[in-house]
Design a protein around this nucleic acid. Structure first.
Lengths: 209, 209
DNA sequence: GTATGTGAAACCGTTCACAGCA
DNA sequence: TGCTGTGAACGGTTTCACATAC
């Protein structure tokens, strides 16, 4: 692995490559060139080679990349070899969707706990998980070895949810609420914010008028 | 408005500024400096001034920006003065969450139709909307003047959903399925992909080990 | 005095082009 | 020959620094 600083955006693309390599593998494709993969992913072939170059040499000159092997290597780089334990706070429609989806979409992720403040929802059984009160967060996060907290509450309560996750000892947060969370810098936060994407769409549609 | 090419990333930040200006406005703050807003948004003050500079001059030297006025101007730039009519395909948990959330989160967006293939869901009433069969998409999109299609189906069916939206005549698509959609280049597509965000989180957590 | 607006500089990421190797 | 791996060139974005205006 190179010692230069690896751009976050390159890592993000690795995830894209992994997804499309998995699709190629499912189709029985054994070898792919950077040009072939680039075509599928909608990026420049040199981009792929450069992105991979940050982490090592995975191809064979004159041939390309073995699909299974490259997929394995990228998953190793991303840290997806192990199982990641997630906890959810906010078991509304969005939260329920996440409980149902995440493990299907990407092997390696498992929700092991879900939290709510709404008494009507506490105790509900969703798959393997019993919805617990937020008060039990610290205990359950420790007991179940939760590493990543997922926030799917309304913007109004997102900061409090984040604070509770921090106190409970999670190392990373995936935040679906459209707010800037204030968190200790050691904590890793990723925001999923579709309202900004919608706004961009409107801007581009408005330009075309 | 300047005639130079405006970077998409600058437009995306306008949306962030708008959200935080709205919060300031709610708190009764009347004037804010680029430094003050930058602090809240987590960006560099010069960045804000430059971003705004693409579109005009909205501040007063020595003073700052009037919150209400700047918010209004940004919303105008983004095309958020009008009401945008959305249609949803895929009324699962995620779709239901969107039907309930989007209009709350950001004034200006309204879902006017929802589509499904699952016969069990067709006919369901969710708020003002009756879930319609996908077959009725073309007719309803025209009748209701839908401009943006929102895809919340499984990856397996996302491309078909997109094709149907295109045929029905939507101008933009907000896609929640983790797949690259193949669409006519005239169409505007934005992807919301939390699996890649999760992968990034894992990479960063793995680095810290 | 203070904060905006904006050229210029610094920085970063992408793409090119070709050496190196199967 | 064909495709990877990578230094170099390019283009775009961010930040600086200061003239300008209130």
């Amino acid at each position: 692995m190179k010692s230069v600083n690896i751009p976050a955006i390159a890592v993000k693309r690795l995830s894209l490559y992994a997804r499309n390599l998995a699709l190629l593998d499912q189709k029985g494709v054994e070898v792919v060139s950077s040009a072939g993969l680039a075509d599928i992913c909608g990026v420049n072939p040199a981009q792929i080679r450069k992105d991979l170059g940050y982490f090592g040499q995975f191809g064979i000159r004159g041939v390309g990349y073995y699909v299974k092997e490259l997929l394995f290597e990228i998953r190793k780089i991303l840290g997806l070899e192990k199982e990641w334990r997630l906890a959810l706070v906010g078991v509304g429609n969005l939260g329920s969707a996440l409980l149902g989806h995440a493990q299907l979409l990407n092997q390696g992720y498992t929700f092991v706990a879900a939290f709510e403040t709404d008494p009507k929802r506490i105790g509900m059984q969703i798959g393997d998980i019993t919805v617990a009160p937020v008060k039990a967060m610290k205990r359950l996060v420790m007991e179940k070895g939760v590493e990543i907290g997922v926030i799917a509450v309304s913007p109004r309560w997102a900061q409090q949810a984040a604070d509770k996750f921090v106190k409970a000892g999670v190392r990373g947060i995936l935040n679906f609420a459209p707010v800037q969370l204030q968190c200790p810098s050691a904590l890793h936060v990723e925001n999923v914010d579709f309202t900004r994407k919608l706004d961009m769409l409107c801007y581009r549609l408005t330009l075309n008028d």
